[in-house]
Amino acid sequence: MEMTAPFLITLGPLLYYWPRHTVQAFYREVAASAVDVVYLGETVCLRRHVMRPADWLDIAAELTAAGKQVVLSTPTLVESGAAIQLTHKLAAQDDWLVEAGDLGAIRARGGRPFVAGPHLNAYHGDTLRWLASLGACRFVAPLELNRHELAALLAEAPPDLPCEVMVWGRMPLAFSARCFTARHFNLSKDDCAFRCIEHPDGLAMRTQEDGEFLTLNGVQTQSGAALDLLDQAQALAQLGVAALRVSPQSQGTLPAIAALAAARAGQASPSVTPPAGIGRCNGYWWGESGNAWREC
């Protein structure tokens, strides 16, 4: 029998704008799942407001009570005063660990522990050592690495800096000052009518030949297809990856967590269906374009 390697199951921050009761119901289910670590907070657009800070803290308390490690994520693209203030506020507290979404959050953390987020471009050992020297206690690998590059990165990583890899969900690929959802509806960014809330998995942007391509999610652009490396969970753990990240979608999130739990227990994990109309991709892992899908 093949040896199984341990890993943590994590749930990345919710990247979409869902109604408040949907968010609360979602995290109640998460609390009852096999997930070990949950990242919370609004990282994409600070105009989204149905979840008040107190609501997030209630969920954090609920998850902590259920035995989950809670990490508060700071905004990714910080340009406005509001995002700077929120970053400082999150960085200043010590009730929960913090995921640094940008360089400013690392400075605001002032040497206290943080998780280095997926958009900090930690591509090699020198950068990882630098992050560790500033307090990083885990890092999320860049999305575009293939399996050989990831192995090389792990070989260079400081031994006390565990690695987390995203394995399921639409991938956050780009950030802009511009809101593409508002643009699509011919609305200005500051008067956007919060149309994101109508699109629980973002707004599909397909080619003129109707091919799946990208997803508009406010100022964030995501992959059209959902990443699915669930069948590689053991391979990732064998490489030395310490934590595998599921990114919330409207459907399939809990099954993805369950599939990872099964893989961790050495059981065969069933394949997980993304929300209707969304395909799957795993090209980065196999050294191809990120949108490619290779059946294994």
Binding site: L77, N121, Y123, E144, M171, A174, F175, R178, G290, N291
Partner: peptide, 21 residues
């Protein structure tokens, strides 16, 4: 560039090659 530079993987998503890598 309409995207924040250094944080855009659209090109590698479509082709494998990006500004970063």
């Amino acid at each position: 560039c309409v995207m924040a530079e250094g944080r855009c993987l659209l090109s590698s998503f479509a082709t494998g090659d990006s500004p970063n890598n």
